[in-house]
Write a protein that binds this DNA or RNA. Structure first.
Lengths: 234, 234
DNA sequence: TCACACCTGATTGTGTGCAATCTAGGATCC
DNA sequence: GGATCCTAGATTGCACACAATCAGGTGTGA
């Protein structure tokens, strides 16, 4: 299942991972020729990949001016978290009755893994949490089995960007976030939708507090000292 | 503002209108060459238009097998209306404080127009409601000024499909729906977010009842007599 | 010295050709 | 007679070439 049929799909996936992995800074230009060379395909699949990722909200497309990695203002982030607050807890609740023992096991494994690689100390690997976290939330979304809700989230949250940077968490918030994952698993195991819903609400609000603070901080820093980074949004 | 810069954008808009206008049946095949000839461009912009509309959810793309107009099951429709119920009322409430006198005038004009062309009797033009309705809801979305919420709706509702067919309304539901529009305008004019929110909730639930019934009816009809329509989903 | 116009290099937008893949129909074998 | 294989036609996927557009730098004039 790893071997994808078309070059386009491979390009989409590769490019998505590149952006999600933080390979490109927010606002960085994405030249078609450069990407084509990097991915080993022609411009045609790259172009289609950019179109799809633009639809996902990962990149921004302006006519005749190419693609850039999407950047987010503090206001937009607040809106996104506002939305997540109203959607994801419901999703978690919906997931509970649909979760079988093996699903619980999967979620538990992911939560434990995140706890392991995320806890402060030697061996902490903040970048390692990102894919685990994505899979955790993705599993819940799949279990909820509500396509409309799922695509609404996908359409607005562009989750990857939001979930990308665990480096912005302070230690208390990070510990809390990791504990939430474990607690959600317990709620699912106990078959208690309202518990899961409540913890998920707290989980999102916690993340919101961290992200909004970080975005504001970043904004003021950019305003005061305009660093000459190689790639910058105009 | 009508003159779009690139052929691709023109192709996207033209194709969207074609699908929304019911030019193609649900599940109908959309050949690249056929569309290219019809729109007067080459396959390249058509191809890009198809990927964009696929991202919007209007068409479905399968590798090496081309594009088809997206079809919806009754379950999916229920999910979509479930979502709209939780998002659009909030959106209406958010729009209220941002609406100036000219916005109210615009909404009032649209509501009146819909009442005029939609009321049963001579001169009724059900197809004429569609663009007005889209503009009405679109205006509210814009006024709410909540990008994340807006794109969540856009991502899941694929509103056009849902709003496409006013022919499925029975007379009572249609009258009620048209009355809702007027009442929403009054709520906005009165500056009462909760009123607007409540009416919008009723509005969506009313539409939901009509659509879900229609979808189920259609499903049973298709199951019993498989009509040999020119275009059919396989 | 500043403002404006022009020009050039680079990048994107679009058209077209060829190879790969899929669908449909008929022939062959069991 | 039914199922399978094979072939032919059509369609999509991808690459490349050319045209259109944009950004940055340079030169000229006030």
């Amino acid at each position: 299942m790893t071997q994808l049929a078309t070059s386009t799909e491979r390009a989409v996936d590769a490019l998505r991972e590149l952006v999600l992995g933080g390979e490109f800074a927010a606002g960085a230009r994405l030249g078609e020729m450069e990407l084509a060379a990097r991915l080993g395909v022609s411009r045609t699949p790259v172009r289609e990949a950019l179109t799809r990722l633009a639809a996902e909200g990962l990149v921004e497309l302006s006519p005749n001016r190419g693609a850039r990695v999407r950047a987010w203002t503090a206001t937009e982030l607040e809106g996104i978290f506002d939305l997540r607050t109203s959607l994801e807890p419901r999703l978690a609740a919906l997931a509970v009755p649909n979760a079988g023992p093996e699903d619980v096991a999967t979620l538990a494994r992911l939560a434990d893994e995140m706890l392991r690689v995320g806890s402060p100390g030697p061996g902490q690997d903040l970048d390692g949490i990102v894919p685990l976290n994505r899979e955790f939330h993705g599993t819940l979304v799949a279990l909820a089995d509500h396509p409309a809700l799922a695509s609404a989230l996908a359409g607005a949250v562009h989750a990857p960007i939001v979930l990308r940077n665990f480096h912005t968490y302070d230690e208390a918030s990070l510990r809390r976030s990791l504990a939430h994952h474990v607690e959600i698993v317990d709620a699912v195991r106990a078959g208690d939708p309202e518990w899961a819903q409540a913890v998920m609400t707290a989980h999102i609000r916690n993340a919101r507090a961290v992200m909004v603070r970080a975005a504001k901080h970043q904004a003021t820093r950019q305003a005061s000292t305009r660093q000459a980074g190689e790639q910058e949004a105009p």
